[in-house]
Design a protein around this nucleic acid. Structure first.
Lengths: 181, 181
DNA sequence: TGCGCCATGTAACATGTTACATGATTAT
DNA sequence: ATAATCATGTAACATGTTACATGGCGCA
């Protein structure tokens, strides 16, 4: 339901092409709302049909032409309505937990190795959160309030992954305690 | 990729019908791997075609017949392989963060209200984690190791939601500080 | 010569959701 | 009566992924 609204949200910031949107998704919300380019183009097509956006072809020299989308009054209303609607809990798909749920077949050292590989991935993700790529997005904020909100989102990712990492590290300790050293 | 493996994992515990599986998903892994019954029946059909499971109709009096699925050698291999494969990071869809990312249109008190509604939902979810429904599942554990793993999974949910709740509460504090009281 | 960026899209497939469809039994 | 539980499934739709398709420019 919500890719549509994320796209409207970006276009509300400024008129954008599908390609721009794709880059923005990858540079910013990708961690909590991934979107690939076919999905974006398809959704833009639908938004256009529904009159939520308008498109305009901008000719460019040297590089291919762009199709720039702008938000309409209807789109702005839709976005405003969605933004103020009741928040939903993330419905996670957590493949690692499923894996662990059925890991009884494995030897404890193997399970420890799984947790260690998982912790490593979490650390890599945390590094990316701490990297400046994320912070650069904050520059586009149009107000103090917006910057504050975007900082909250960043903080959410960091705290969630730190929490997950702590859990994994505690799990490793616990598993080592029951494993024949 | 992984509903298939979750189903194999359950059937490996004991032979089960689609209906049983549906109940087990709702009672246990639902928070980190939701599955609806059409999905389960469809996946069972495919697993049967692929020779990962066999089915047997069990006639019952008073209640409708059951179609009980059992795991095959092939299915057990597939499961074993998957369980020991490289763990993947959860790729979240976090609609609330998207909502907040574009909440600049709203007045600060409205944003606070959103966070409060969100925090309320988190608390409700935590209550369910602390409820005994989750703990009852632990009874089915076939070994100390399995019980330990299942406890880890429970702990993961609790710590993740507690962390998220703390984040939301801190956010509310921060927003109140910048709002005209 | 080949890779990567720019820029658009489609096709096929996989996965997930909601609604439809049936029908008996048991408890309120 | 009516709702809930048992038990199976299909159909239609929405969403997400991977691969295919095109084509120019600039850089190494």
């Amino acid at each position: 339901v919500s890719l549509k609204h994320a796209i409207l949200g970006f276009i509300e910031l400024m008129p954008l092409s599908g390609y721009d949107l794709s880059k923005m998704f990858h540079a910013s919300v990708n961690f909590y709302w991934p979107a690939t380019h076919p999905q974006i183009y398809r959704t833009l097509k639908r938004l256009l049909e529904d009159g939520m956006v308008t498109s305009e072809i901008v000719e460019q020299t040297d590089v291919p032409d762009k199709k720039i989308y702008s938000i309409t009054e209807l789109g702005r209303n839709e976005l405003a309505e969605w933004v103020s609607s009741q928040p939903e809990l993330t419905n996670m798909r957590h493949p690692f937990l499923v894996q662990i749920a059925f890991a009884n077949l494995l030897e404890t050292p193997q399970i420890i190795a799984l947790f260690e590989a998982y912790a490593e991935k979490l650390r890599a993700r945390l590094d990316r959160y701490h990297g400046d790529q994320q912070r650069q997005q904050l520059e586009f904020a149009r107000s103090e309030k917006e910057r504050f909100l975007w900082n909250l989102i960043l903080a959410n990712g960091i705290s969630a992954f730190e929490c997950e990492l702590k859990w994994a590290e505690r799990a490793i300790e616990g598993l080592k305690a029951i494993s024949p050293a």
